[in-house]
């Protein structure tokens, strides 16, 4: 392998996007409004598009002949490198929006930094994906404000969603000084973005010392294996088939 660090990095980002797409797509036909059905499918499609570019590139870097589908459908959960945040079940709409807020407030500065990195392929992917992330962040922020500052029930649910999701943000910014972009450098912008949204939404930033992690090393929650079982079942039932 030419560049194992870049491979691991591209794989982790590709897995983040793929698992996020899989979870968001679960909302199809279930969203609280028909317009939201379209919006969530749109965001899922963006994530899936980024996942395909990143996994294809990871496969090329690896040089072992694995394409995007081999990486998506033929790895087990211990081989996935996504953060735990994206594999968490959707919960209610408030929790889904809390997940999307944290994810997009992380992906936007990440892809923006990536757009200026030395690796041309990653830079091109970052340049494309950051525009989409800006829209995802805008969409999530708007809903977090609506729900936080909406009714009593929606406020309660939105705060609960943020409380559930918040500890999983820690893992996103663990330092990787050798990576094309060191995530630790993105934490400040993330905190600024999210705390401004939460303040306007009349929500409080949770205080928790719990910082679950392990996704980047392939140690996941119990949920990921079920997600993969569903995602991979058909592909694996027909080894070598073309679709």
């Amino acid at each position: 392998m030419n560049n194992p660090l870049t491979f691991t990095f591209a794989l982790a980002l590709g897995d983040d996007a793929l698992i996020a797409a899989q979870r968001l797509a679960e909302w199809a036909t279930r969203a609280p409004e028909m317009e939201e059905d379209i919006a969530l499918a749109n965001i899922a499609l963006d994530q899936l598009g980024a996942a395909r570019l990143l996994l294809s590139y990871a496969g090329e870097l690896e040089g072992a002949g694995r394409d995007e589908d081999a990486l998506a459908f033929l790895r087990d959960d211990r081989e996935f490198r996504n953060c735990l945040l994206v594999e968490l079940p959707n919960g209610d709409f408030a929790m889904t929006m809390a997940k999307l807020l944290v994810l997009s407030a992380y992906q936007l500065p990440l892809y923006t930094a990536l757009a200026g990195c030395a690796d041309e392929r990653l830079a091109a992917i970052g340049g494309k994906a950051r525009k989409e992330s800006a829209y995802h962040l805008d969409h999530a922020a708007l809903w977090v404000k609506r729900l936080g500052d909406g009714t009593e029930e929606s406020h309660r649910r939105m705060q609960a969603g943020i409380d559930q999701v918040w500890p999983y943000a820690h893992e996103l910014f663990v330092a990787q000084p050798q990576a094309p972009v060191d995530p630790a450098t993105l934490r400040g912008e993330f905190d600024d973005t999210v705390s401004a949204v939460l303040a306007e939404a009349t929500l409080t930033v949770p205080e928790s010392g719990w910082a679950p992690g392990g996704g980047r090393d392939g140690v996941h929650t119990e949920d990921l294996s079920y997600l993969l079982a569903e995602m991979q079942v058909l592909h694996r039932a027909h080894p070598g088939a073309r679709w």
């Binding site: 609280p32 409004e33 939201e36 209610d92 729900l147 909406g150 009714t151 029930e153 929606s154």
Partner: peptide, 8 residues
């Protein structure tokens, strides 16, 4: 299940 979201 979406009613509370639309109300909010």
């Amino acid at each position: 299940e979406g009613a509370w979201v639309r109300e909010a």
